[in-house]
Amino acid sequence: MALLEDRVNSVPAPRELTTKPRRSDQIFRFVVTLGGMSSLVILGLIALFLSIKGIHILNEKGFSFITESRWEVVTDENQEVIQSTFGIGAMLVGTMLTAVIALFVGVPISILGALYLSFYASGRVKTFLVSLIDLMAAFPSLLFGFWGFFVFMDSAEYWAKLINKYLGFIPIFQVPTPIFERSPFIAGLVLAIMIIPIVTSISREIFAQTPLDRIQAAFALGATRLTMIRAVVIPYGRGGIVGGAMLGLGRAMGETVAVYTVLNVVYAVNWQMLFGAGGNIASLILLKFGEAGAYEVDALMAAGLILFLLTLVVNFAADFLVNRFGKRGR
């Protein structure tokens, strides 16, 4: 009797569920873990390197390193540093300004392009354009820079003057003196062209995954392609578009050579995007690295560290946005 009661009254604790994987599976698990962790390790090592090299500069200069806008080193005849001022404020602003212009121009073009490729382009045109865009993604950025400098600059300057003439009452379109060459506007446009391939191909892949049954449901309700895209494809792809745009933003913020070619490096914070003055962190590093002494190199590493952190923050913010707003259409 007691036994029966025990069985009725006692609820067992959940058992631990275990399995012993086969040897081959264990080895494979080790190999893929290695692969998975390697990117984390490499990223960590780079961050560590930048920190070790740059942290003493940040300690010395403090907050002024990101607020100040001067970059001066005075050395004596023995190459000993007598006096130095390092501040990347202008470069930080330039980095963000050019990247935002790039997104503003590049992302809409990319989305339209991706929609065309996914829902309008037919057979051969589509295959051709897709491989062209992939080619464009692999194009060296130096060539974009050259093209921007020798070919694109003239027309962009003309547009800049037009914008200044008709929209000049808006503060960001004002210029203190009429210098329209090598401005953040032009650098931003070159960057926009550079991010179009990546944003387009990511958006296209997301659009291609739109569930067919939803597309069919929309068409069966008398939808046109435009209304179908608005009701089905865009809500589904929203998260992916944000993700692609953030990859583009990352590329735009880190771009070195192209920006160096088409943007004047000037050590003054400049929000007036049509005015030929600016620079971004990466192009500053390129500009100074060749002739920098050991101490200045450390300062450049500190600038690199700031860029690294900025990229990290932007990516986390993008992840947050995708998780927050991207899921609803799925």
Partner: peptide, 8 residues
Amino acid sequence: KPNPFPSM
């Protein structure tokens, strides 16, 4: 297959 629009 039932296919309501999930974003709506």
